[in-house]
Amino acid sequence: MGNAEDFKNNVSSAWCPGCSNFGILSALRNTFVKLNLRQQDIVITSGIGQAAKLPHYLNCNVFNGLHGRILPVATAIKAVNPKLTVISVSGDGDIYGEGGNHLLHAFRRNPDITVLVHNNGVYALTKGQASPTTELGVKTKLQFDGVKEEPMNPLVLAIAMNCSFVARGFAGDLDFLSDIIVAGIIHRGFALIDIIQPCLTFGVHQVPWYKDKIYRLTKDYNPNDKEAALKKAAEDGDKIATGIFYVNNKPTFPDITVNLAQKPVIEKDVLKKLLKTFE
């Protein structure tokens, strides 16, 4: 078995000291160890934002692309080489805002990739504007009268659209988060893991505030029951559930499992045969 240290590199971090992202990063390293993955088996992809810098702090293959656009990239990487474990690391602005359309269609397309959304309810890298998940009424430097748009509930959206695996984790409960990520990676299909990740600098609430409210879904919760999952995801009370909300096994994209990158060159005879059809 490997060691979490194997996934560490010497790239210096651009995160704020004490950021809850560090916890998620270490949970991810532990996840790789639990799954017995090698560095070369993993491609970790991301868009733009503080969360999107995470891949640089891991010793794996990395593709750090454009703001909001990582799902199409990750989908194609997995499609071309199904042997790779493909993970996307994103934030609420990146994937629920800028890249929203790709998320909707990833639910439908169902590529076998795992998406971690560091959801802090704020645009931190651009210094504190509202994100699609910021609560109503929160005042920011830009939304100085308070946020007027309703926050989106990504879990409800994902379950409503039959997303293959829907979960919520908490950056203050790393053991459980790591278990959720393990399950998401093992699950064959598109896994959305929304992670409550309080922002030290711009966040409305901090880890201790959440700690009182957050609870783990227990073994008697059935993630195959869509109606119950929707209800659970829509809960809007004092308590916040974490765990695996919904699992729906369905065909993944693409419906072939060859490594296109290793396939021999297309035969000239195939081409010649196709040309014949034009005569």
């Binding site: 491609v43 692309g65 454009l66 199409p72 990239v73 989908t75 194609a76 990487i77 080489n81 296109l260």
Partner: peptide
């Protein structure tokens, strides 16, 4: 972006 992902993958 898909085309770029596929190209990255080889």
């Amino acid at each position: 972006n898909m085309a770029i992902g596929a190209s990255y993958a080889g």
